[in-house]
Write a protein that binds this DNA or RNA. Structure first.
Length: 121
DNA sequence: TAGGTGACGCGGT
DNA sequence: CACCGCGCCACCT
């Protein structure tokens, strides 16, 4: 797939991240079919490539840290948005992925793949 | 064209 | 847990 399609896939994956849960860059890259492109997911969000409505605040790094917090309107914006929907963020900007991580099922992954196919991306 | 960058991730120490 | 090296890859000088 080309880069534009990859960004479209990211946007679709974003719609599946449940409120009150968080996903990782690597997880999104995997669901998009490019497991080695986690860096590009970060790039896409930073540049708004996944669309205005994408819940970027629900995306953290593999350790659970709010690694992109500095790129929001204010440094505490991501933390506030997460806490507003019940996600606990520690003083050092970390979330417990065991508790709040989105542990997507194989079924959800398949559903996404079907959506990609149907949209031809 | 070559080289540097980074909202990443994994494995080793 | 921290720190480090390395692989990764689209972008941007």
């Amino acid at each position: 797939m080309n880069q534009m399609d990859f960004y479209k896939r990211i946007a679709l994956v974003g719609e599946k991240i449940p409120a009150g849960k968080v996903a990782t860059y690597g997880q999104i890259a995997l669901l998009c079919g490019k497991p080695n492109n986690s860096r590009q997911v970060g790039y896409a969000l930073n540049r708004g490539k996944a669309g205005k409505g994408f819940p970027a605040y629900r995306v953290l790094n593999s350790k659970g840290y709010l690694s992109g917090a500095a790129s929001f309107e204010t440094p505490d914006m991501q933390r506030r948005l997460l806490e507003k929907e019940g996600v606990k963020v520690s003083d050092d900007d970390k979330v417990d992925l065991k508790k709040f991580g989105w542990h997507h099922t194989l079924e959800e992954a398949k559903t996404l793949y079907e959506i990609f196919e149907k949209k031809g991306i």
